[in-house]
Structures are given as C-alpha cells and as structure tokens.
Design a protein around this nucleic acid. Structure first.
Lengths: 334, 334
DNA sequence: CTGTTAGCGCTTTCAA
DNA sequence: TTGAAAGCGCTAACAG
C-alpha cells in the first residue's frame, strides 16, 4: 500500500505513548480530557504531545467516533450573490463551533443536487440544502435518507428549515407602491415553476384580491440582468407606472434598459427589486428593494444543524421577513 | 461508544459479502474494478451491492488509503467577488475530477489563515491558499508543513502557483490611456502594504520611466466603493484627465461621485477599474477595466493540485494576463 | 482467482 | 487509575 497523504511527517499516538512511557489508551484519555487520568500523567502526556507536535488524526477519529465534525452545504450556484452570502454566514458560524464546511455547487442541476447530497452526506455529519429547483416530492424523498438535514428556503415535513418570507416581503413592496399611488403595476416573473416564483405570485394574487383598484400584470422574464434588460420594451409598452422585478439583477437590467430609452426613474416609472444584493445601493438612482438577510439565514441554518447534531430539540421552522428598503427608484405615480 | 452518524441506515461491506456469498476482499476487489475477479462473481457482487444500496464508507477508505479525496481552500473573505469566482471555478473543476472541497474563510485574519491551513490540511489531501495578507516569511514557513500546496496570487519558492499579472495588466491600461492622449493620470491606491498594491505601483513606476511625458499621481484610497466615492473630490481637484482605480469597486464609487458633481465620464474624465467584476459591465457608462479571469484561476489552481496529487510534474508557476476590456468610461483626453 | 489476515490511527470496553 | 485488546469499515499483502 502506497500512502499518498505523506505531506506533514506523521506522528501517531504510539509515538506520544512511547515518549511519555504510557499506553496508547492513557494518551487518548489524557488528550481528550478524561478526568480519570492521574494529573501528573496527563501533564507528561501533554508535554510529549507538544514536543512531538502531535494532533490526533481527524480521519481515524472520524472512523471510530462515527462523526466527522464536518457538514456539507449544497448550493445551486456559487456565482449567485445570495448563496454566497448564505455560505459566508454559515461557514463562519460553523467555524465558531469548530465544524468544517464542505461545499458543493450543483450547477443548477436537479440531478446533481440529488447526487451531491448523497455523496457528501457520507463524508459529513449532515447536509444543509439550498435546493430551489428540486420538485417537492423529490425533496421529500431525498431528505429521508439524508438526516440530519436543514433546508434553506424550502420546507419538507418536520425537517428543520430557515427561510425568507418572500410573499410577505413582496406584499410590503406592493403596499409601498400602492401608497405612492401606483395602480397599474407589472411583475417581471422569474423561473416559471420555481418555488420562489410561486411564492411571489401568491402574494400578488392576495394583494389584488384586497385591492380591487389595482391591476398587476405578469410579464415572463427571468432571473438575471439580461432578462431584465430584455423586458424593458415590454414594460414601456405597457401603461404601468411601476415594475416589481423578480430580483435585484432583473431590476438593474430593467433600470438600465428603460433609462437608455429615455424613461426617467422614478419620475416615469418606479422600480423595485428583491434581495438587496451588495450592488443594489450603487445603481443610479439606488434601488428600492426588499433586503433578504442571506448571511443571517446561513447563521440560523447552522444553528439548526448544530442542535440536530447535539441531539437537542431543533427549533421550529424559522421565517425571516425581508425588510422593505426604500431608496431612489420608487416615487409617486405619474 | 454512541455513534452519532446514524442517519442513513448503515450497510457494510460484510452485508454485501454475505448476500453475495463471497469474502470481504472479493467484494472490495469487485467493487473497485480489480480485473483479477471472475466476471461472474463481479456481477453477483455488484447485484448484491445494488440491492443493498451499498457504497463504501469514504471515511474508512480515507483511513486505509491515506487519501480523503478532498482538498481545502482557504480564502480571506467569502464575501469578496474575486474569491467567490475563484472558489466557483475551483469547486467545479475539482468536482469534475471527483474531489470534494472544504472551504474556510479566514475573515481577513492572518492568524486564522495559519490555524485554518493546518487544521484543514489534516482532513484533506492538500490545501489551496489565497492568502494576500500573510507576510512572505510566514508564508514560506507555513507552506513547508502543508504540502501539497497550491498558491493563488502568491508565490513561495518552488510551490506551484497561479496568479494574475497585475503589473502587466496595469501597464496595458496605462498604454490605453496614453494612446487616448492622456498625460496627467491619477492612481487611486489600495491597501498600502498589500502585495497587490505593490505590483501596481511597480508597473506605474516602470511606465513613467518609459513615458517621461506622462505624469501619474498616487492618491491613497482604499479597496471598496465608499473609498472610491470619497476620493472623488480629490480627483476632481487634480488636473488629471484620467483615473486608474485600484479595483472595480473603487472605480464604481469614483464614477458615481464625480458624476454626481456634474463631471462627465468619459468626456471630462476617463476612468479604468480592475478585475471586471460581474457588475462592471452594468454601470453607466459601462466600465473599462482589466478582466481578471478569477474563475479560470480557480480552475488552474485545481489543475496544479491535481498534478501534485497524482504525483505528476506540477506545471511551473502560471501567470495569466488580465485582458484589457475597453468599454464606456474611457475616451480621448479633453 | 479467492479467502484469510493484518493493519490504517484512534477510542473504549473490560480486566487488573 | 492504567493497560491490553477489540474494533470502527475498509484495502492489500500473502497464501492457497
């Protein structure tokens, strides 16, 4: 057998035992803070370990303890600002609890999501899933074999989850526009069958039911800058005084396109985004949007996972309401 | 001993062996594609494994093989677009070779960088370091105990590395401005003692030496949008016709600030950024910048690591030249 | 070609 | 309180 992992010279527990003149078990006990070890011996063992620069092999410990001190995070796209923020919050929170994070990017592929979840689960203690694309029934089936699992922006039975209240935040945005006098609004829709889009559509339906004076038209669009820019002419062709974009990227694309056509924002058209990505505050004018606390979602997701790992009662599903952040792209209806 | 990792019901190699009526070794060999196994038996073993939904425990394999099939990536800040892009490229490239990625965010702390590197190395086959902050001597010392290591945007002895040629790209930007007739240029500097800033300063000195007709003034600035915006008045107060920003964030802040003061870009002032972050093409006008292929850097870093892991000759240090990307913020000198 | 046996490096019974 | 021994789940010599 050829060992590949021969970078740092390997010192094993046996070396420490030999140097301290004790048995392997004593070294293990001493180093793990087992109180039944004679203090003098503990001292001797620790000295020996320090002298040899010894640390127990995490892999060997993982095998015997059945615990890797690592969790997996599956995201659909590491290039998306929202998932980056989630990952950042999650990674730092986990690190604070001495856990490691294995990331996997499913490249927006439902199939990859499934495969990666299973594959990474085997080498970690649990998986945190950001799977907007996975159909609900598949998700339900998948999580069963994965536990412990924490879901972000999805739910499945009793599985702990943290999510942003997309519907509630969209309602806030609509109320904001309504308050400014807007009665004809267009909604630039995202991926047609995604859960995220469905939540927005529901909120819109509810709002319209409550406000018969308001008309909200859906325009199929997409989720990125290009899609938003491409929708510009359709928006201008409509008689809407305000546009609600699926997310900030779309809003920025739209903003850019309508401005290029001589339309003034918010004078002629108000625009709201969604997410509050870092650049939302730097558009001209700065974008009104709903701030999704993505990093906080990551932190809370870790908190849930930690509870599961500790065997504690996992907190119920957490829902945070994105905060309406009024900036420069919204104003009174023309 | 209480096993924690009891999510998916555990099927071991012994179960497969029993069901197939063979020994453990035969199962191992069959499943690992060892050609010395009777085809009929291989078939039987695979059927049994499939029926039991068996996959070998990665942890147990790691222990015996001395190889985890995982690499660690240490970045200073997961919130930075550049590192996000590197991570994305790296993660996908590694996944294509069936490797997993453990990420750690050092939160810009030099001390954390050191600790994380050591800690993650033990549970992986190698580490890829993005450590702009670590002083050279510490870096040199650190990498010794970490091998295999790949460095991104840093070098250390014979350690394989991939980096962007900041100096070369900056020279291209200056040549572009010079060609447009600019002779008085300001440089908005980044972190004073960073490696990245030093490279830019060197390139500037070299350019000035070659072009005595051109005057380049340094203005201490910073690395983010706010810093760029704050430098606006200083830039306007100078008699420069063009500004070279440390990075795109700074350029965007500057652009926004000078436009707010009625200065027209590029009519009154040309601006160039650096990095070509995703939003650089969406400013008004779109930003001229040097496109650093961050994702490609990640891909190449993985390629180097893979070679090290395979025992192949690791390619020499790779330097990619960011491509000058001329967009709307540069024009003829006033 | 296949089975038996010996570990990988560690933790934890079980005896002493 | 300590040591000897078993075993986590797997792979690889070594015989047969």
């Amino acid at each position: 057998m050829t060992r590949r992992n021969d970078g740092p010279a390997r010192v094993t527990i046996a070396d420490v035992a030999a140097r301290a003149g004790v048995s392997l078990s004593t070294v293990s006990r001493a180093l793990n803070g087992n109180p039944t070890v004679d203090p003098a011996l503990t001292e001797r063992v620790k000295d020996a370990a320090a002298a040899l620069d010894y640390t127990a092999s995490p892999v060997a410990r993982s095998l015997v303890l059945g615990r890797t001190q690592t969790v997996a995070v599956i995201v659909p796209d590491l290039g998306n600002p929202t998932f980056q923020a989630i990952l950042r919050g999650l990674s730092r929170a986990a690190a604070a609890d001495d856990y490691h994070v294995l990331v996997a990017d499913s490249a927006e592929s439902v199939e990859e999501e499934r495969v990666l979840a299973g594959a990474t689960r085997r080498r970690t203690d649990g998986v945190i899933l950001c799977s907007p694309r996975l159909p609900q029934d598949e998700l339900d089936r998948l999580v069963g074999g994965l536990r412990p699992v924490v879901l972000i922006n999805r739910t499945s039975g009793e599985v702990p989850s943290v999510r942003a209240d997309y519907g509630g935040a969209l309602a806030d945005e609509l109320a904001h526009l309504h308050g400014l006098g807007h009665r004809r609004i267009v909604f630039l829709a995202g991926a047609p069958r995604s859960v995220a889009n469905a939540a927005r559509l529901e909120a819109i339906a509810a709002f319209v039911a409550d406000h018969p004076d308001t008309e909200i038209t859906e325009i199929p669009c997409g989720v990125d800058f290009e899609a938003g820019a491409a929708a510009g002419s359709a928006v201008l062709a409509s008689d809407a005084t305000a546009a609600v974009a699926f997310n900030d990227l779309v809003a920025m694309g739209l903003l850019s396109a309508v401005q290029a056509s001589g339309c003034r924002v918010p004078g002629d058209l108000s625009i709201v985004g969604f997410d509050d990505i870092p650049f939302a505050q730097y558009t001209t004018p700065p974008l009104t949007t709903a701030a999704v606390p993505a990093a906080e979602l990551g932190v809370q997701a870790w908190a849930r996972m930690r509870e599961l790992l500790e065997g504690d009662e996992p907190g119920g599903p957490l829902t945070v309401l994105p905060e309406l952040t009024v900036r420069g792209t919204t104003g009174p209806a023309a």
